[in-house]
């Protein structure tokens, strides 16, 4: 059994400085740093790279915890309705015109995430069952999706509409230290909460009845999960929009290098998610594309969908 955590840390330590150098303006590490380059590094590249790390870490950890909780390798953090809830909040901030005020967009998005979390706990929290919980999450996701479409179709100006649509695609362009300070505490707290859920997720490997016989409190686990996914995913959506596939893919990369227990998957998935988003965002900056740069959300979906199909087909072959 290889140990994934040191390996991933080493890869991150290598990728982070490299990603700082890459972009429209390439920075030569051997040359003395000019004032323009220093500004680009300190105010653009560094916050952006850190945001990529935070976003990926949150999505990876949330995906690993969700798959453990639902005992299903196809689960994705979007399934609980928290990401759509946060996105709905953000859309409303554009719709009302508040988004131009600095803190409003993330504040609206976090309110949306909190609303989805609250609704989820109220509907499904009574008995702590997984099935009702999943259905409630899917209901909230589709409700938030419908309300988003409504907001877009009724948007007051074409400008607001294009702003919403662009934002929904998810990106890390033109982010600043402010977003880092929003995402960092939320994501780190969320990962800590998800780690605390690890024992319960391990017990769930044996099914709900056996898990309860091992002393698992299903309601406590559910609350930890809602809180952890809410903090990581809500914080991520608030600063970057919707980034798909990371939470779904990353646990699959990591799982073969662990002993299979969900608790052992959470931190390595956070690191692998950070690495994936950091590299993908770096590629987005470097790829020449007429009319701007490839948006991160689109890039990850372009990358993720075929890869995931390949993974599914391989899984199928192994089962047959």
């Amino acid at each position: 059994m290889t140990r994934p955590i040191p390996l991933l840390l080493a890869a991150l330590a290598l990728a982070l400085p490299l990603s700082l150098l890459a972009g429209r303006v390439w920075i030569d590490p051997t040359a003395p740093l000019g004032s323009e380059a220093a500004l680009i590094l300190a105010e653009l590249r560094l916050p952006r790279a850190l945001l990529a790390v935070l976003l990926g870490a949150g999505l990876g950890a949330a995906g690993a915890a969700m798959q453990g909780y639902l005992r299903n390798p196809l689960a994705d953090p979007g399934l609980f309705g928290i990401a759509p809830g946060a996105a709905l909040g953000a859309v409303l901030s554009f719709w009302t015109g508040w988004a131009s005020a600095g803190w409003a967009l993330p504040a609206f998005a976090l309110t949306g995430a909190a609303g989805a979390m609250l609704l989820l706990t109220i509907i499904a929290g009574r008995n702590g069952g997984v099935v009702l919980f999943t259905l409630a999450g899917m209901m909230i996701a589709s409700l938030a999706g419908a309300l988003m479409s409504l907001a877009i179709s009724l948007s007051p100006t074409p400008f607001a509409m294009s702003e919403i649509v662009t934002w929904l695609m998810g990106a890390l362009t033109d982010r600043s230290w402010r977003e880092v300070w929003i995402a960092a505490p939320l994501t780190l707290a969320g990962i800590a909460v998800l780690r605390a859920a690890g024992r319960g997720l391990d017990a769930l490997t044996l099914g709900e009845a056996a898990a309860r016989s091992l002393g698992l409190d299903p309601r406590r686990l559910q609350l930890l999960l809602v809180l952890g996914v809410g903090l990581t995913v809500g914080g991520g959506v608030a600063v970057a929009g919707i980034i798909g596939f990371v939470g779904l893919m990353v646990p699959h990369f990591v799982r073969p290098f662990t002993d299979g227990r969900p608790s052992r998957l959470i931190v390595p998935s956070a690191l692998a998610g950070a690495l994936l988003v950091l590299v993908a965002d770096g590629l987005c900056r470097v790829l020449p594309l007429a009319g701007g740069e490839l948006r991160l959300g689109i890039a990850l979906s372009l990358l993720g969908a075929p890869f995931f199909l390949h993974l599914l087909l391989r899984l199928r072959r192994e089962l047959v």
């Binding site: 391990d202 099914g207 009845a209 091992l214 002393g215």
Partner: peptide, 25 residues
């Protein structure tokens, strides 16, 4: 100790890891 009727093991863990889950309490 309770052994349910449905013998579910959600993840492909080793026998040793599976037995280790019994130590959770």
């Amino acid at each position: 100790g309770y052994l349910p009727q449905v013998a579910e093991v959600a993840w492909d863990v080793s026998v040793q890891t599976l037995a280790g889950l019994g130590r959770l309490p």
